[in-house]
Design a protein around this nucleic acid. Structure first.
Lengths: 167, 167
DNA sequence: TTGGAATGTCAACAACACTGACATAAACTG
DNA sequence: CAGTTTATGTCAGTGTTGTTGACATTCCAA
């Protein structure tokens, strides 16, 4: 490449950072980081025979109180049978309540009870603490890049769901 | 805050970027991005009745040919029973071979067969393609930040394993 | 009224993790 | 050498989370 390569500047980096080795490091970083990301809530959940699925349901119900089952399904990307099993235990345990819709009585609107909100807070606090520490370690510009890459890694439908939650 | 806040510069950001809302966005970004991260290999694996566990084993055996079972266990962070189930099927299907150690005959050293390497390449290609696209979208500085935050999110033992793989 | 959408339930199954227990062989240690 | 530890493998049981398929109910809408 005779034209325009400086070898040390921006253009050199943009050629190098897409090598298979660099990509593999990114892949492995995702793998390990996700383990860390879920480690704290997992520990708490294990004590009450709940799992990640319960956490996810609780998180998004807290995020969007009154959300419908269908809406939750599209966010979580699982089958209704799978979600239903989780919701049934959460409702049975008094962490979630399901209200029949007023406009459309087929729909069930989901809310956290006080007890559900308390668990959500416990789980969130643990996860946010780690996130906060990671953000602090890495610095604000790194966080910008972090979010940018993650968003670029999503499928279009996930990106839509993600954007919707940011309203 | 009378002293030193500009409201638009670096100091303003470093105060704001640790709000619960910002952290929650990061948490949700991780959730959705990880789905995207695994989506392509998952599709391929589903066709051959393999799962993510097989992918992970194949990935790290390819990454460190001759690695022992114990070493793989510490990297993957699962029980030996869980790993053994996966390895048994991979060995039975002719994707992995296990050689008795020469120095220490208790150890089994793991290698991919040609067939195993072929599957690894197929899975890696799919995952790297998405990673490459995300990196391209986000730009080189974003990638730096991405890795920095991910690394800060790991537990100490993961960070050690991750660093070890970068040698 | 017929069709479709939203929801729920039941059954079966698979992947993947866990614990606990036990076996074997090899290596280390006193 | 005897005893212990280490590395690995295996069997049995259990739990969470996901899947498909089938079927029922309720209700809105054309």
């Amino acid at each position: 490449m005779p034209e325009g390569r400086t070898g040390q500047g921006y253009s050199g980096e943009s050629l190098l950072f897409l090598t298979d080795e660099q990509l593999r490091q990114g892949i492995e970083a995702m793998f390990f980081a996700y383990r860390g990301f879920t480690a704290d809530p997992d520990r708490i959940l294990a004590e009450m025979s709940y799992g990640r699925a319960h956490h996810r349901a609780i998180h998004f119900i807290n995020r969007s109180p009154g959300t419908t089952v269908n809406n939750l399904l599209s966010i979580l990307g699982v089958t209704k049978q799978s979600l239903n099993r989780v919701l049934r235990t959460l409702i049975g345990d008094g962490l979630v309540i399901s209200k029949v819709g007023e406009l459309d009585k087929r729909e069930r609107h989901l809310y956290l009870t006080d007890q559900g909100a308390a668990l959500e807070a416990t789980l969130s606090d643990a996860q946010r603490a780690r996130m906060r520490a990671a953000y602090k370690d890495a610095g604000p510009e790194a966080v910008q890049g972090f979010k940018k890459v993650l968003e670029a890694m999503m499928d279009a439908d996930m990106r839509r769901a993600y954007a919707k939650l940011r309203d």
